[in-house]
Design a protein around this nucleic acid. Structure first.
Lengths: 190, 190
DNA sequence: AGGATATCGTTCGGGGCCAAATTGCACGAA
DNA sequence: TTCGTGCAATTTGGCCCCGAACGATATCCT
């Protein structure tokens, strides 16, 4: 039976709870499952190949970015790794003290810092990446290559939607009001 | 052109870097995009509806779980919210001090703690959820209902794969070796 | 009854994480 | 020259996060 709904227990409960409310069910389900899948995948990889090499997910992603792009400016690495500059400062420092990453000032612009892998870092990635990729294949084991392509493509459209229209959308939602502070984090000065 | 590959710049670089190495490209791409999409969606929602109500993503998920399931034991909430018991202790305490959640001891089993929403918590969810769902619809805006169902279904299969075979797989990978400690976190006693 | 064992939630240690504030360099204008 | 402006990375504050250790309770076995 193709196109079967395969609704979970939680989704049934939600449906009941929301009784009369109009709800975008498909969109709710896709968001919930994106997040669940991301957590499950991350957890599996951290507890298998990454644990062996004593790397967190984030540390691995940062190494990966520097590996494939070569020596790069930190803001580029942060962007590509999907973390903030502030977070990268800490992570790259840790990787530096472990001898996997080298940081060098930019030759002509003193504000920039360039990150690159040490020989040890290169060697680590050559050793760890194949195992990492094998576990990626494991977690996606119930999906055909064709399905992987389809899902990856759909998720890219989600990312693009947020990247291209997210800010505009958030501004529209505020509708002129001031942006409301964040509870956590450093307090605004004024 | 259906089934088009739509490869990104980063994926091309990775391919080059990996020269001779055999790589499961589709699986690599699907994992990368699951994670990117999850981050993008979380960030958008935290910076729009959740910011207004001064909730983090995790706090919202916890409230949501208690809302749809009703009064629940903490281990159940943690499981369903996808966080560890230890994390839930902190989050639920914060929500308690904000007057959104109530904690009560189990009447017959002194080890258990039950979580439920206060009236204020209920009211908050009735107010926030519709907005949240609207943003879920926004981020999934480039996907048809049919595509949402397809993606959600595929991602459920990923989650299931890890839940059902992940531990077994991790044990097989160790192949008898001791599980290697985690760098961060409390040190084992011995 | 009473001790071993299992299971609960909590505590604790070491990160990760964001965004505001800050610091430091670059570069053009007065 | 010195000042302002702008953009870089870093520091900081408050939260999230996991999993080992812990204390309390429950249950099973004798």
């Amino acid at each position: 039976m193709p196109g079967q709904r395969s609704i979970t227990e939680a989704e049934k409960l939600a449906e009941a709870k929301l009784g009369g409310m109009p709800v975008r069910h498909e969109q709710m389900a896709v968001v919930a499952n994106i997040y669940r899948a991301a957590s499950a995948v991350r957890q599996h990889l951290e507890n298998s190949v990454l644990r062996e090499s004593d790397l967190t997910w984030t540390a691995f992603v940062v190494l990966w970015v520097i590996w494939v792009w070569g020596e790069s400016e930190t803001r580029h690495v942060a962007e590509e790794a999907g973390i903030s500059k502030g977070t990268l400062t800490g992570v790259s420092r840790t990787l530096e003290t472990r001898g996997l990453v080298r940081r060098a000032g930019h030759p002509s612009d003193g504000r920039l810092v360039l990150l690159s892998l040490t020989d040890e870092g290169e060697e680590l990635m050559r050793r760890v990446f194949p195992k990492f990729n094998e576990e990626e294949a494991f977690v996606a084991g119930q999906l055909s290559d064709e399905e992987c392509r389809g899902v990856a493509d759909a998720l890219r459209r989600v990312v693009l939607q947020v990247e291209e229209h997210g800010e505009e959308r958030r501004l529209a939602l505020l509708d002129g009001a001031e942006p409301a502070p964040r509870r956590s984090g450093r307090r605004p000065k004024a």
